[in-house]
């Protein structure tokens, strides 16, 4: 176990190098966020009832703000490219010889990256939320906050396993970027990045609920906003766990097959 602490430590030090880059990323990311909030404000202005699909304006604004928080904590940014590059350049050969599991190694690096990113993004994000504090909703009670933390942790694991498995495509194809972008596009819309999924026609939202995507973003955000409570919350967490088990199984299976195919180019 100790060796993975070392990996985490090295990961922290390595990603700290990119802190300015992260700061830019986090700050620039606030611009489209501001834009989408403005669009919603304008829509609510023209709306007499003051509610859209059971969202008050403050809830809608908070939805996007919480997305930013969850994203900072769980989104995979560089890891998938690095994994694909490791495979393509033959760097994974060393992991086949060392008593170190590549998936666990990568998970530590992912964790380190998220810690650094979240720490750097904290300042601009908190400032931004402070400016919008009138429209920002906190979790209604401690139990909800706890539920949120649990679901965010599970979201991070799910996000990682999803990207890890996708990056393993590099065993079979030379250029994985397009596949990653295609998968990301699905995740972007079906995860609730663009808009809350309950804005969709119920039939579509119902179908999406059978995919892992809503559990990679929409679910924790809904928990924060107090829209999923009690039994539904724990049921959702259970579904997240099931998806994690499935994703882990798939990742292992793909890895084993990939290794058999692997020819250590340039290793």
């Amino acid at each position: 176990m100790g060796k993975y602490w070392h990996v985490l430590n090295i990961g922290l030090q390595n990603t700290l190098v990119y802190r300015v880059n992260f700061l830019f990323r986090a700050s620039f990311g606030l611009v489209p966020l501001m834009a989408v909030i403005s669009v919603w404000r304008t829509i609510y202005l023209g709306k007499s009832g003051g509610q859209i699909a059971n969202y008050e304006l403050t809830q809608m604004v908070s939805y996007y703000l919480v997305i930013t928080i969850v994203d900072a904590l769980t989104a995979v940014t560089e890891d998938d490219w690095q994994i694909a590059a490791d495979i393509k350049d033959g760097n994974i050969s060393q992991f086949l010889l060392k008593p170190m599991d590549y998936l666990a190694y990568r998970f530590c690096l992912f964790g380190a990256g998220r810690l650094v990113y979240a720490a750097v993004a904290l300042v601009p994000t908190v400032l931004f939320i402070w400016c919008l504090r009138d429209s920002f909703i906190l979790p209604p009670d401690a139990a909800t906050a706890a539920g949120f933390l649990v679901s965010v942790a599970l979201t991070a694991v799910l996000q990682f396993l999803f990207s890890f498995t996708l990056a393993l495509l590099a065993f079979w194809v030379l250029e994985v970027a397009t596949f990653i972008f295609i998968a990301f596009a699905f995740e972007y819309i079906a995860g609730g990045h663009l808009f809350p999924l309950d804005l969709l026609p119920p039939a579509v939202a119902g179908v999406l609920d059978y995919t892992p995507f809503p559990y990679m973003l929409f679910f924790p955000v809904s928990v924060w906003l107090g829209r999923v409570t009690g039994e539904a919350l724990w049921l959702g967490v259970l579904v997240q766990l099931l998806w994690i088990v499935a994703a882990y199984g798939l990742a292992r299976c793909v890895w084993n097959r990939g290794i058999r195919k692997y020819s250590a180019v340039g290793g």
């Binding site: 403005s38 669009v39 304008t42």
Partner: peptide
């Protein structure tokens, strides 16, 4: 790279109606 990536975010504003702002 961070700056270039930032520009991509600016593109995102361009496609929204001006009256929303």
């Amino acid at each position: 790279q961070g700056i270039v990536w930032g520009y991509y975010n600016l593109f995102n504003i361009a496609r929204l109606p001006d009256e929303a702002f």
